[in-house]
């Protein structure tokens, strides 16, 4: 139901944009006003969220670690998985941000009645008719990691390739990226490897979400909405590049008009481009309010970006109210005469 309703919403958005792109009257709205507004919402929204996180106090070290912490010199410590230095944290964060290290550790529990593997290789054959006990087994789950990694990296490549529409003269580096991405030179316009990876990864993520009963049970409207929105964005982009060609030069005039604040809406741009632009605008405007904010959140996760120095240094909560303490020495002074009279040992004579 969630999947269907989010698909309907995305299709409705696409339909609205198509109408807006087809009518000359609405073209400036969908070509200039909506993208400008969306970019503003994105910038202000992201800034607000990040500043809010920055103002949130994190008085203690709360990293979730998965390695041996530093203690005695003869116990081998894991400086990346349980970092106690800044460089360790930087490496850990880089692995997390660039390679999704924690997702790589993803496991999946499943009830199985398969026989237990005995030592090397062959599982023990259970005797005929012997009931096999159901066991919970945690297996590796790498496909989600692979699809997530493929999606994010290919999305970055596609995003950088789009710089050719925003920079004039187009830098040589963008051309080099496009040449590497289109290395196989299949067809004209050349098929980009990142486009295929992007579609395949998004497709897998959607199929995984909707086919696995457990994951489907957990999935909310917004989970599907982000996927459908991205799929719509990529689908319209792929359609325009390979099938229903728009006038690229006119589109670049429009984008350059946006970045130079001298807006122009060329007459002959196909409505499909307006669908692409509108879905992007919706994505940008939706971004700060959605789970997509993990783009900034991954850097600001206290469970990742803190060194595990809980037992090396004393971390005092800065806003603790002053606590009136009564030390043993003070207590001893108070009752010194009684203690000595009773013949009890005292610390200080």
């Amino acid at each position: 139901m969630n999947a269907l309703s989010s698909l309907v919403v995305v299709l409705l958005l696409a339909g609205v944009a198509w109408v807006g792109g087809a009518l000359a009257l609405l073209r400036p709205v969908f070509g200039l006003a909506v993208p400008g507004l969306a970019a503003g919402i994105f910038l202000v929204g992201v800034a607000t969220r990040v500043v809010g996180w920055a103002r949130t106090p994190v008085p203690f070290r709360i990293p979730t670690t998965c390695g041996q912490q530093r203690s005695l010199p003869w116990i081998k410590a894991s400086w990346i998985e349980c970092p106690w230095t800044r460089s360790g944290v930087v490496v850990r964060m880089a692995l997390e941000v660039l390679l999704f290290r924690s997702l790589f550790r993803n496991t999946r529990g499943a009830i199985t009645t398969e026989p237990v593997a005995q030592g090397h290789g062959t599982p023990a054959a259970a005797p005929e008719g012997f009931p096999r006990a159901a066991r919970l087994v945690y297996g590796e789950q790498k496909w989600l990691w692979l699809a997530a990694l493929a999606f994010h990296w290919s999305f970055l490549v596609v995003l950088l390739r789009h710089l050719r529409f925003f920079l004039e003269p187009a830098p040589a580096l963008v051309g080099v990226l496009a040449a590497v991405d289109g290395f196989f030179q299949v067809g004209a316009p050349v098929v980009y490897a990142a486009d295929i990876a992007l579609l395949a990864a998004l497709g897998y993520l959607l199929v995984r979400r909707s086919s696995d009963p457990q994951v489907r049970y957990l999935s909310l409207f917004q989970d599907y909405f982000a996927l459908h929105l991205l799929l719509g964005l990529v689908a319209t982009g792929v359609l325009m590049r390979y099938y229903v060609r728009p006038d690229i030069v006119a589109i670049k005039q429009l984008t350059l008009g946006l970045v130079t604040f001298a807006p122009v809406v060329p007459a002959h741009v196909s409505p499909l481009f307006f669908v692409h632009l509108f879905l992007l605008s919706v994505l940008l405007a939706y971004f700060p309010f959605s789970k997509l904010m993990h783009m900034a959140g991954v850097f600001l996760s206290p469970t990742r970006n803190l060194a595990n120095t809980s037992r090396m240094r004393r971390h005092v909560n800065p806003w603790n109210p002053p606590v009136k303490v009564h030390t043993y020495e003070e207590w001893e002074d108070e009752f010194r005469d009684k203690l000595e009279a009773a013949g009890l040992p005292v610390e200080r004579e």
Binding site: R164, F165, L167, E168, P169, A170, V174, G175, A178, A179, Q185, A188, P189, I248, V249, K252
Partner: peptide, 11 residues
């Protein structure tokens, strides 16, 4: 002119 403008290098 257009190819340079659009940043494409046809082969």
């Amino acid at each position: 002119r257009c190819h340079t403008y659009a940043g494409v290098t046809p082969y």
